[in-house]
């Protein structure tokens, strides 16, 4: 199993952000992580990437414990945080060389070239990050995540805020990556899941509400969107304000 979490729980004071979630993702699967805003998607991803520890529960990446061997796990995981934070005053190549350095990459130059090629950044490589369009910035964020050839990619809303053409381009990049990597990506766009993912994990108010293959969820003619709405509503988890 590439990613495996068991009874993962995160509480902030009395508020439960993630409530006893368990799932495992085999190597090479592209999984869509769905849920309404505030459902705990980002928190779960932050736990898997080692940014914050779980309150209780355990998790492993490629068999390595998330909390005990956080540094080892980080070598295997590429992470694109929500909102794609970047240093706007660095050049694209300079930034990627810096990230390669702190990711423990031995041969920095070829790794940067490869990441630039994979994310099709070549025409913009000599520009400053701040001069790039949002679509290209997102590619820099992706390049940053995959520079050390991680086995697992965690992408938090990789297509949010992009225009339709950019969305299609980024989806293609992620699809290509998914061929030889395990990908967990969060989104709330259903078409995106149908376009990119093999499987869906849905959470609502911190609880797991669905975990199935996309083909299973859509087989009796229902759209993913209807399934999502009924699942999210079924436990009265989502209230319309």
């Amino acid at each position: 199993m590439s990613i495996k979490v068991e009874q993962l729980t995160k509480t902030y004071g009395k508020q439960v952000a993630v409530d006893a979630i368990s799932f495992d993702i085999p190597t090479g699967q592209v999984v869509g992580f769905l849920g309404p805003n505030g459902a705990g998607k980002s928190t779960t991803m932050k736990i898997i990437t080692g940014y914050i520890p779980p309150t209780s529960g355990t998790g492993t990446v490629c068999g390595i414990d998330l909390v005990q061997d956080s540094i080892e796990v980080r070598k295997l995981v590429g992470y694109l945080p929500e909102n794609n934070p970047l240093y706007l005053d660095m050049y694209v190549k300079e930034y990627l060389e810096f990230i390669a350095g702190i990711s423990g990459v031995k041969h920095i130059k070829p790794a940067v070239e490869r990441a630039i090629e994979m994310t099709k950044l070549t025409p913009e490589r000599h520009k400053k990050v701040g001069q790039l369009s949002k679509g290209y910035r997102q590619r820099v964020g992706l390049a940053q995540a995959l520079i050390h050839e991680p086995k697992v990619l965690i992408l938090d809303e990789p297509t949010s805020g992009l225009d339709p053409i950019q969305v299609v381009e980024i989806r293609q990049v992620i699809k290509d990556l998914g061929k030889d990597k395990t990908v967990l990506l969060s989104t709330h766009i259903m078409q995106e899941v149908e376009a990119m993912c093999d499987r869906v994990i849905m959470i609502s108010k911190g609880k797991l509400v669905a975990d199935d293959l996309v083909t299973t969820l859509t087989k009796d003619g229902k759209s993913l969107e209807d399934t999502f709405r009924s699942l999210a509503n079924s436990d009265n988890h989502v209230e319309h304000i």
């Binding site: 980080r74 934070p85 990230i99 702190i102 423990g104």
Partner: peptide, 13 residues
Amino acid sequence: LGTLEIITTKPIT
């Protein structure tokens, strides 16, 4: 900028 989340999830202490 939020970049702290990037550098603290890289394999350095």
